[in-house]
């Protein structure tokens, strides 16, 4: 199965810039479908980025994060070739994990 997470991590000197795009419906639980029935809430609650055994960024999300979420941040202390581990869990117990090499 193709990963739901797409990541680009680029090292520029000491700073590594990370951009991630995740495929997820991020349903709020407030929207009705075409039959007038509520679509149950289904959204990512936590997204974690780890590098060299350390959390570098943790996101706690509610339903107000857009569908197919995008996130950008930067951190220090990594170099080219280091591995970045990304994982998320949603409110229905779903999860996904991927790793990316810092370019």
């Amino acid at each position: 199965m193709a990963s739901s997470i797409r990541v680009r991590a680029t090292a520029n000197g000491d700073i590594t810039e990370v951009q991630a795009l995740i495929q997820h419906p991020m349903d709020t639980g407030l929207v009705k479908d075409s039959k007038g029935e509520l679509i149950p809430a289904h959204y990512i609650q936590q997204l974690k980025f780890e590098c060299n055994g350390k959390d570098v960024f943790v996101a706690d999300w509610g339903t107000a994060v857009s569908k197919d979420p995008y996130i950008k941040f930067s951190f220090k202390g990594a170099k080219k070739g280091d591995e970045l581990k990304i994982s998320w869990t949603d409110n229905k117990g779903g999860s996904d994990t991927t790793t990316a090499k810092i370019a």
Binding site: M26, K54, F57, V58, D60, V65, Y70, I71, F73, S74
Partner: peptide
């Protein structure tokens, strides 16, 4: 619900974040 997203910034991470909200 007012809270949209909360990000934890550990030591060494730059205090800047971009995202998309509803």
């Amino acid at each position: 619900f007012a809270l949209a997203a909360s990000y934890r910034i550990p030591d060494g991470t730059v205090a800047a974040v971009a995202n998309r909200l509803k």
